[in-house]
């Protein structure tokens, strides 16, 4: 065996990616931190971070966390039974159901949100179909609309990982618990739910992260009263051109997300290496 030669090749093989990831993953994040603590002239300052504790921004942060939290809980409540029921069907139906779950995920976010708005507008499809144009059910530009948009857009991210875990569960474990006297309800709460924890945890992060950082959904469905963190970031980078402040919000958003993920991981069993997190 030519060990020396192979090891040289191996070292060389991962090198391009290592360089790539340092250049385009690590350095950009360092730049966010750099911009956070400097002003437009590059001088060190904490003004950007201090501005975040102003009442206006604190309430935006609180709102973002609250909406994303509610959306995540709603997704979980809808997705768990769905994933469980899907896993009980025939393999062929399962495959079809999972494909149908993924399909909306891969149609454009903008147009999906847009047609959802189209559905719930005051003069939209629902109100027209119900003949309520004179006295419409007001749904758009409310917190309900924003949360609905989040649930609608990110539900597949919750269904898929939970379904994966449930469909891999050992059938013998479930039968054993039935033999030992569990009824159907107890099988779910005492056996299936605990065993699908890892799927639930990745589902929660996969919904919460995009939900808390969205800017398009709240902009399109929430009007001006439901501004979220993402909108402030978009605003400071593309319209008001205050990159330093935008970086500060992005930085804090990253910290909030890391903390949330750490909390969620605390609740789950640590058997699957927590080292995967940053």
């Amino acid at each position: 065996m030519n060990n020396k030669r192979t090891s040289l090749l191996q070292r060389f093989v991962a090198a391009p990616y290592t360089v790539w990831s340092v250049l385009f993953i690590v350095i950009p994040l360092v730049m966010v931190v750099y911009y956070t603590f400097t002003d437009s002239n590059g001088v060190f300052t904490t003004v950007n971070v201090a501005k975040l504790v102003e009442k206006e921004y604190l309430s935006i942060f609180a709102r973002s966390v609250a909406y994303a939290f509610i959306a995540t809980v709603v997704c979980l409540v809808i997705a768990f039974p769905l994933a469980y029921f899907i896993s009980q069907t025939k393999p062929r139906t399962q495959k079809l159901a999972i494909m149908l779950t993924m399909l909306p995920m891969w149609t454009n976010l903008v147009i999906r949100t847009y047609s959802l708005g189209n559905l719930i507008e005051d003069t939209g499809v629902i109100n027209t179909a119900l003949g309520l144009l004179d006295n419409p059910i007001h749904m758009i530009n409310t917190p309900f609309a924003v949360i609905l948009g989040m649930v609608y857009n990110y539900l597949p991210f919750m269904v898929l990982p939970i379904h994966t875990v449930i469909s891999k569960l050992d059938k013998n474990v479930i039968e054993a618990s039935q033999d030992l006297g569990c009824n159907k309800f107890k099988v779910i709460t005492k056996v299936i739910l605990p065993l699908s924890k890892s799927g639930i945890v990745s589902g929660i992060t996969m919904v919460f992260v995009p939900a808390i950082s969205t800017f398009y959904i709240s902009k399109k469905l929430g009007g001006t009263d439901n501004r979220l963190i993402g909108e402030v970031i978009e605003d400071s980078f593309l319209y008001s051109e205050n990159w330093n402040f935008g970086s500060a919000i992005s930085f804090v958003l990253m910290i909030i997300i890391m903390l949330s993920i750490a909390i969620v991981n605390k609740f789950s069993d640590d058997e699957e290496g927590g080292g995967m997190l940053l």
Binding site: E234, S250, M254, M258, L278
Partner: peptide
């Protein structure tokens, strides 16, 4: 892990 918006602005 990072939200898309942070990846984008960074």
């Amino acid at each position: 892990m990072n939200p898309d918006i942070v990846t984008g602005v960074s």
